[in-house]
């Protein structure tokens, strides 16, 4: 007990005024704003797909983009909440990505069924995963850098959500840039790698966010 009293005294003497961390919603808006600028810049440099406006008239393309956008928003929000030890006491919202991914999966399944006869497969394959991964690097680095300033008690999940959020930015960019309509190609080379990314995020979270 004497040790604890000494520690309390030492900590109290060390306690200067502290600026509380921003609200997770604000944090999430900041991340999303930065990601939106990054996405806009990337599209401005690489150029959107030529039939982009026309594609938005196709129900399943619009639904896919909306669902992907949903994944991005929800994973960003989850990352921000998971940065706090108590998830800012919004546990349900923190685990909302599960519902967002379920919805995304449903949309992709329906889009695959509607892709009949199947659109031709593009000649390239893994290049898409590689491009998305490269686009992911900067937002992921920024997310992890920000997260390290907080105190996550769910560091594995926070790492996974952060990486998935960053990856969804990359996936959105490629979907708006690349002139491909083959759902089989999209699932295989754009979206299935998300599983790997999610697992890699768990590992990275443990390595970088443990405090």
């Amino acid at each position: 007990m004497a040790n604890i009293d000494d520690l309390v005294t030492a900590l109290a003497q060390d306690a200067a005024a502290v600026k509380p961390a921003p609200h997770p919603f604000l944090l999430c808006f900041q991340w999303m704003g930065a990601a939106a600028v990054y996405l806009a810049l990337a599209l401005a440099i690489s150029g959107p797909r030529p039939d982009l406006l026309d594609r938005f008239h196709h129900t399943w393309f619009a639904a896919e983009i909306a669902a992907l956008l949903g994944v991005f928003i929800v994973t960003s929000l989850s990352t921000a909440l998971l940065a706090f030890p108590d998830l800012h006491q919004k546990r349900r919202l923190a685990f909302a990505p599960v519902a967002a991914f379920a919805l995304f999966l449903g949309v992709m399944f329906l889009a695959w069924r509607a892709d009949n006869p199947p659109s031709p497969l593009p000649v390239h394959s893994f290049e898409c995963t590689l491009s998305i991964a490269l686009m992911t690097l900067l937002p992921a680095a920024w997310a992890f850098y920000s997260l390290r300033k907080f105190a996550s008690t769910h560091y594995r999940l926070a790492g996974s959500a952060a990486l998935l959020s960053a990856f969804s930015v990359g996936a959105l960019w490629l979907r708006l840039h690349e002139d491909t309509n083959s759902i089989a190609h999209l699932v295989e080379w754009h979206y299935l790698p998300m599983l790997v990314i999610g697992v890699a995020g768990l590992w990275l979270g443990k390595a970088l966010l443990k405090w």
Partner: peptide, 17 residues
């Protein structure tokens, strides 16, 4: 308990009151 107190000190900025 000492570890927890140190953690509280380190993470106190994540509590807004």
């Amino acid at each position: 308990m000492q570890e927890i107190l140190l953690s509280i000190h380190k993470a106190r900025h994540t509590y807004d009151g």
